[in-house]
């Protein structure tokens, strides 16, 4: 399989030749074969990469959450039919997946995982962080959610319930964190700045207004 080079390898002493790792060459092979067959074109591939890397990202999700905080009827719609409510803001999933919004309350904290593989609401959160895809997170969140949350620096009160939601290819979850105190009268833009990606996965909370000053 693929060779993973480590830090101080001798490659810096070989300035002249090019080299593809097995994985690089294999992806090149797939790309050239699919291009030749007319199934993909490189420009479209670049455009998709760029979209997920820079344009989509967690800011879409933050806007959904901010709207829900600011607008009770949107929040109600989001609770009832998250797929439609989120689509109304222009964010739709490429895989035709359904969305469900789970709301944090003073009594309950929600946490999202995918134990099957690593389904993730790309349309609202961009590409998943590496830890979300790592087996330790996926296996341990179900067994010991509080322990995992503590590793993220999130210590919840003992009487707060933790609900873990397991994503599937068809259904992805978006956590709506609790609105921070001291944000009365904030615009939706200002509210969105408080919504971190982790708070929408459930491994963090929304920021306090002081934290973003």
């Amino acid at each position: 399989m693929s060779e993973h080079r480590h830090g101080d390898g001798p490659e810096h002493d070989q300035p002249h030749d090019n080299h593809f790792t097995d994985m690089e060459a294999r992806v090149k092979a797939l790309e050239s074969l699919l291009t030749e067959k007319g199934l993909i074109d490189p420009a479209a591939i670049d455009a998709i990469v760029e979209t997920y890397e820079t344009k989509v990202g967690p800011r879409n999700g933050a806007r959904v959450v901010a709207r829900a905080w600011a607008d009770a009827s949107f929040a109600e719609w989001l609770r009832r039919d998250a797929t439609a409510a989120i689509a109304s803001l222009g964010f739709t999933g490429r895989q035709g997946e359904h969305m469900r919004a789970v709301f944090n309350t003073p009594e309950t904290h929600n946490l999202v995982v995918c134990t099957l593989c690593s389904c993730y609401p790309w349309a609202v959160l961009g590409l998943p962080p590496v830890w979300y895809k790592a087996p330790p997170y996926r296996s341990r969140v179900v067994i010991d959610p509080r322990g995992v949350l503590a590793e993220f620096g999130l210590d919840l009160p003992a009487d707060k319930k933790v609900r873990v939601w397991d994503s599937t290819a068809e259904l992805r979850y978006l956590v709506v964190p609790e609105r921070p105190d001291g944000t009365e009268g904030f615009s939706e833009e200002a509210l969105a700045d408080l919504v971190t990606r982790d708070s929408m996965i459930g491994t963090g909370l929304a920021l306090s207004p002081e934290a973003v000053r």
Partner: peptide
């Protein structure tokens, strides 16, 4: 990223 994007495109 390329492998990811190709998969998205084919889908």
């Amino acid at each position: 990223a390329t492998a990811f994007a190709m998969t998205v495109r084919l889908h």
